Amino acid sequence: MAEQVISVKNTNIYQGANLVLQNVNFTIEAGEFVYLVGKTGTGKSSLLKTLYGELPLKEGDVQVAGFDISTLDWKTVPFLRRKLGVIFQDFNLLTDRNVYENLKFVLRATGWKDKGLMDDKINDVLEKVGLKSKSFKMPFEMSGGEQQRVDIARALLNSPKLILADEPTGNLDPGTSNEIMQLLTSISKDSQTAIVMATHDFMVIENFPSRILKTEKGAIMDSNVAEVVAEKL
């Protein structure tokens, strides 16, 4: 039986005082690739933020990478984050330092101290995303696709069980989006890393079909690719 990386039971998701998703129930296993779709404002980002501990869990049972989200506090959130990788639409790279220093900053922030081990890990993740020769580049010297690859490399630094990706192809052209999707799907398959990807990119869903969770009318449910692509949320 595959390991459950996410388990959400009888859960209500809030954005501040507003209830945005009600009675949420789903599980995601190791190595599973899952799209999260739905109209703007239906709770996708709130759900992701709850899963990685940015929004508090008020009601329900949520387990993520072995952590009980209901018991998280400021002391335990960093330990949860070490088990996760988070990929953003706007890359969120530190603009005043090069690729190597961006990745080194994350390793130091998550407790790494040995310079040799840090060098090895940075080289390893850059090789996985096809950027081993560009560790000296500054973010502004790179294309959008290259910056997104750096963001993915950053998400891989602590060998996560789970990657949460919020619109990772949203700012990319179709060709670059396909390259990023090929990279993400291979990471999911080869490393048995579960990936949950919020997206509005229906070309991506059509080209790389997988399980879909859809937010609609305050609820979340499994949907099929044909229906979602036809509706063009």
Rank of each mutant, 00 (worst) to 15 (best):
W74V: 11
E3M: 12
R211V: 14
I180S: 00
T110N: 08
I163H: 01
P139V: 10
V225S: 13
G111W: 06
R149S: 09
L84F: 13
Q63V: 05
F67P: 02
D61W: 08
T76W: 03
K39V: 11
V24F: 07
V34Y: 07
N10E: 14
G41P: 04
E29P: 06
A17K: 13
E231I: 14
I87M: 08
M197I: 09
S191A: 12
Q4D: 10
Q15M: 12
A165D: 11
K217F: 09
W74R: 05
K49D: 08
T27D: 09
K232E: 04
I212F: 00
L51Y: 01
T11C: 12
I195A: 08
L48M: 13
K115P: 15
N224D: 15
I212W: 00
V64C: 03
Q22P: 11
L19V: 07
D222E: 15
A153T: 15
K137D: 06
Q22V: 10
F33T: 01
E206V: 15
Q15G: 13
K49G: 07
M142G: 07
G66D: 02
S135V: 12
K161A: 08
A219R: 04
G16R: 06
E3K: 14
N178I: 15
G130T: 11
Y100F: 10
G111Q: 12
N102W: 05
Q4V: 07
L184E: 01
Y14H: 05
I28G: 07
G218W: 10
R108H: 07
F140E: 11
P168A: 14
K132Y: 12
W112T: 03
P209Y: 13
S135M: 15
K134F: 05
V64L: 04
L72W: 02
P139G: 11
D73G: 04
D201F: 02
D166R: 02
L94K: 11
T110P: 06
V196K: 02
F105Q: 13
E227V: 11
D120G: 07
K44Q: 13
I122A: 03
T42C: 07
R211M: 13
S210A: 15
